[in-house]
Design a binder for these strands. Structure first.
Lengths: 188, 188
DNA sequence: CATATAAGTGGAGGGTTCCTCCGTTTAGCG
DNA sequence: CGCTAAACGGAGGAACCCTCCACTTATATG
């Protein structure tokens, strides 16, 4: 039984000062991960948040917990993007969301590094992505534009794999995504 | 001017004992990276190789250098596999090599983690993979089975992206590879 | 074979990062 | 206001990285 995105609401501290510190830590972590990857020194993150190292550990017992919290926020943004393409034609809507996904992931290092992690949180995030994209895929399949034997989880994982390609150019990534998406189309 | 695979022949020590230590280090690193990823502690690798930490550093000035040496060996194996499918029909040959690639990468953690690194060595390794796979792609294109607007580097990067998908099953990876490869086929 | 020497050795020590302890401080409730 | 649970953070120890330097050894040469 995998938890859903909604069930991963973070338990935030009750005291006002502690809540401020929690938010500072998340902001500092997001910035540091973006600059240095998810291996950024925790003492640096605590320094940027203007808190002591023990405060960081009290809020996030492990580095993984901190990464997950930052990751959760980013995934929410991608899931929300699915609602912004509803007005497009079925294939165009699916395409737009997947391209949005790849482009967004390309600018969020914590997303690239989180796509393949194995934990309950990351599993739940993948489920959230599946749920966000499933209506778009179904619409395109109902319109006869996408082969009916393809499931949303395969699509998301395929696109995630492409999003995770490093040391490449935007142009190449677009070409590769185009090839892959051509594989989605219904056979003529 | 990117160096080729052939130009990356490692300078091995001249003394017999040092050569033995070098080989021990490579073997220990391969094993440790496979178990723990490319972040395995260097002191552990030295311990497994039965050498002191300074000996490890003398042979491999940085962790990256050690990773690259192990990676080189693994890439050679993939490139060689291209010569083992020549007897197959054009499409089957390309398919077999790409599947071999994905399967092999899936069992070699250092390969997964190296596919997207950015250094001269890794670039050269990618070139090596392109060269190995190019004849197979050309044959399939000449046979009219693969769209002519696809280049080998895009194919390798696409398949590498799929190979790098973590936290998934063999079945799912096969399905995803199938979708992507369908995108390679010549439009009907 | 003996010798010289360049090649090669590794543990200690210092720096960085991770993680926990525990005395101290502070927010918020009755 | 007083009390106390929540929250604070720096010190210290462990793990890992990296270099120094005294010591060892393989090998070429006479």
């Amino acid at each position: 039984m995998t938890t859903t995105l909604a069930e991963l609401v973070q338990r935030r501290p009750s005291r006002a000062d502690a809540r401020r510190n929690y938010d500072s830590l998340i902001a500092a972590a997001r910035q540091s991960f973006a600059e240095m990857g998810t291996e950024a020194p925790l003492e640096e993150i605590a320094r940027r948040a203007d808190v002591g190292i023990a405060t960081l550990y009290r809020n996030f017992p492990t580095r993984e917990a901190l990464v997950e919290s930052v990751y959760l926020e980013e995934v929410q943004a991608v899931c929300n993007a699915a609602g912004e393409v509803d007005h497009l034609e079925p294939w165009e809507a699916l395409l737009a969301w997947l391209r949005r996904f790849v482009t967004y992931v390309g600018t969020k290092r914590v997303l690239v590094e989180g796509l393949n992690r194995d934990s309950n949180t990351f599993k739940a995030c993948r489920l959230g992505l599946y749920e966000a994209g499933a209506p778009l895929l179904s619409r395109a399949q109902a319109a006869g534009l996408v082969r009916p034997d393809v499931a949303i989880d395969d699509v998301v994982r395929l696109v995630a794999g492409i999003a995770g390609i490093g040391s490449t150019t935007e142009e190449q990534r677009d070409r590769i995504l185009g090839i892959a998406l051509d594989g989605l189309k219904r056979a003529a």
